[in-house]
Design a protein around this nucleic acid. Sequence first.
DNA 1: GTGAAAGCGCTAACAG
DNA 2: CTGTTAGCGCTTTCAC
Lengths: 331, 331
Amino acid sequence: MADRPLQVTVEDVAREAGVSRSTATRALRGHGRIAEATRTRVESVAGRLGYVPNLAASDLAAGGTGVVGLMLRDAANPVYGALFSRIEVAARDAGLELVTVTIGADPGGEQQVQALGRLLGMRVAGLLVATGGVDSHRLEPFASEVPIVRVGRDEPSAAIHAESYDEAWHGGLLAARAHELGHARVVVLGAEAATSFGEHERAEALVASLGATRVDRVATGAAPDDGVRDALAAVDAGATAVLCASDTRQLAVLRALAERGVDCSTSGWDGILPGLDLLGLSTVRVPVESAADAAVERLAALLDGDVDLPIHRRWRGELLPGRTLRPVEHA
Amino acid sequence: MADRPLQVTVEDVAREAGVSRSTATRALRGHGRIAEATRTRVESVAGRLGYVPNLAASDLAAGGTGVVGLMLRDAANPVYGALFSRIEVAARDAGLELVTVTIGADPGGEQQVQALGRLLGMRVAGLLVATGGVDSHRLEPFASEVPIVRVGRDEPSAAIHAESYDEAWHGGLLAARAHELGHARVVVLGAEAATSFGEHERAEALVASLGATRVDRVATGAAPDDGVRDALAAVDAGATAVLCASDTRQLAVLRALAERGVDCSTSGWDGILPGLDLLGLSTVRVPVESAADAAVERLAALLDGDVDLPIHRRWRGELLPGRTLRPVEHA
DNA sequence: GTGAAAGCGCTAACAG
DNA sequence: CTGTTAGCGCTTTCAC
């Protein structure tokens, strides 16, 4: 191997193999007609020299990449981790190469612009957007030039494809369960719209499905234990369950409950957390896998020029009954 | 905005702004001398046209990228999720742009070669390797051309930097705890070397620290409940604790124990899982944050040409006593 | 089957 | 302060 493998160019490989640059390229990329003998010779020279094709050059010359870009939200959250992982696997199975850029909790801010710019600047062949943090209006101008699929969140724009979760339905599941267990006054705990649109949407879905049930809505910031105090106050005032817009929040509530020795039903939302069965969490298992698979499949189809699906689709998960949401005890 | 923003070139912007291509570039990149008036004009034209610089072209012309590459292992595991997230944040704080490629559970295989090739092909300025799945000998040839920092796992090669965990010490922590609680016969449950080197290493560390304690070593495959049956058999035969090489495995054991109504101490390793406090898991909290921060900081320093650190460093976490590893009850 | 030549879109000296 | 001039490394017609 050369002492500076990354400095080796096709030119070098060609010279060393005694062929022209174009022949070397052909041999390496396996396109056009080429003599088998030449091909193997060039290949072995390339290997010996440690040649690593310069992608910038090749993308530029070829006028585009085969790579698809993924914009992701902070993976510390197991839900995004699971989504990421599943997208990754699906993409690999579909023969798509993926490059990922992540975006912190910086709604509407600098980061997303930059991340999006980077991916578009790479002239990715397609875009998967798995973060609520990116506004549709930023994406929209590019929708006609590169296929964009949003995953895990509803998409308002009709120009952008989406595979999301049927959160309204999920809310119905939880509300029905709470009702069935006799809860007549509950608190709904979840972020306000500006903090996390997803959580907000979930909370609203819950409230909407709760119908006649008396609801104390606690809208909070991003930190899991934001609003826990308020929720407990409502419990003291007579609420019999704290319905949370995410499992992380539910954990915070359980922690607070345990600490104060208060007994109260809770539920969450996500259903991804390893060990949630041991904890007995009552929650909704969100269909991460379906959405991820569908998004990748859809993108692959778009890249192939096929399109026949409705532009937006929603997937349904299931209720995990658990043990934290219990029947109301009548005094 | 142009009807085809991604087709707009500096040339177009320059023409529209009535300047030359190089002036336009200068205006956009803010290098060299440029009249403030021209700059704003060019900028506004670029904005209006929806110009997105072609990075392939710019990287090629500039002879390199500013981007650093991250090779990551499957993020479904909360530990990798946490690591990923922290690296991301640290990189952002350090002003580094990150592109990530992930590698499935394909030790030594095609995927890593491809992923590495993609990053090197992009001519990244530096490389962060956060997966055990990439062999050192693949990395080594490039270590002299691009700074490479391995994170979260020991690195055998002296050419490659590393910020890893002091697993031997962690093993000591757990072993001491088990001893102190009176466990005289334990089972150590963790993957075999070929399946997960990290887990294997942990298990070995445990065994080594366990000294005179009688140990049944159960070496398994990757699935969390592999080997659980064997572990329980050892418990039936008299072992008083099952020490696991990861928290995921510990969960599997707890599940099996609960199912069979058997009572037995357990411990895990990782300490990242949200809600582990509620579960009372006894485990070691691995110093993900320290390693991630150190790795990014080191890489940034390397990119600046500073180097003074020992090439390999190890970080120490802490014991989370929990409630799953309990004193042995004497009959 | 192979080589020569013309760029891809951008940057970076240089002059002016 | 701005325009001109060379490329960066690779792909791709098009002749031979």
